[in-house]
Amino acid sequence: DLDMNELKRMVPANRFGKVEEVAYLASFLASEKAAYITGEVININGGIYA
């Protein structure tokens, strides 16, 4: 019985993420444009840091 509107207000971006947003990052990381990026943790979290 979670209130989705209440949960969204807890996210600084004020919305839930989209599947496409994760896919965009995965696509970038798999491309040559990200060839020099190593050993990073990239949070896709709308601004929620615990």
Rank of each mutant, 00 (worst) to 15 (best):
R15M: 06
S27N: 12
E40I: 02
T38V: 12
L25C: 01
T38F: 10
G47Q: 13
V19K: 00
E40G: 02
N5C: 02
M10Q: 15
S27T: 14
A50P: 15
E32D: 09
E40H: 07
S31A: 11
F16C: 04
G17N: 03
A26E: 12
V19T: 00
N43D: 08
E20T: 06
M4H: 09
G47H: 15
Y36P: 02
V11Q: 07
G46W: 07
S27W: 12
A23E: 11
A34I: 05
G47C: 03
L25D: 01
N45R: 02
P12T: 14
D3S: 01
M4V: 13
S31M: 08
I37W: 09
Y36A: 06
R15A: 09
K18R: 08
R9I: 03
G17C: 05
P12H: 14
G39K: 13
D1S: 08
S27M: 02
V11F: 15
A30F: 11
E40Y: 00
Y49G: 01
L2H: 09
N43V: 10
V11E: 09
A35E: 09
E20V: 00
D3T: 10
I48C: 14
G39T: 05
A34L: 06
S27L: 07
I44S: 02
N5E: 15
G17T: 09
I44G: 00
F28N: 03
D3P: 02
I48E: 14
L29A: 06
D1Q: 09
A23H: 10
Y36W: 07
E6R: 12
K8R: 13
L2M: 05
A30W: 03
R9S: 09
K18S: 09
M10D: 14
E20I: 04
R15Y: 07
S31D: 09
E6V: 15
A30Q: 10
L25S: 00
A23G: 07
N5F: 10
V11I: 15
V11H: 10
A30I: 04
K8T: 14
K33V: 03
A13Y: 10
L7A: 06
E6Q: 15
A26D: 07
P12R: 15
F28P: 00
I44T: 01
E32I: 10
A23M: 13
A13E: 13
I42L: 15
V41L: 07
P12L: 12
R15Q: 07
Y24R: 08
V41H: 00
E40T: 06
I42T: 08
G17V: 09
V41Y: 00
G46C: 03
G46S: 05
A13K: 11
T38D: 00
K8M: 15
K18F: 01
S31T: 10
E20W: 01
I48M: 11
F28I: 06
R15K: 11
G46R: 07
A13H: 02
R9Y: 04
A30V: 01
G47I: 12
L7G: 06
M4Y: 14
Y36H: 09
L2W: 05
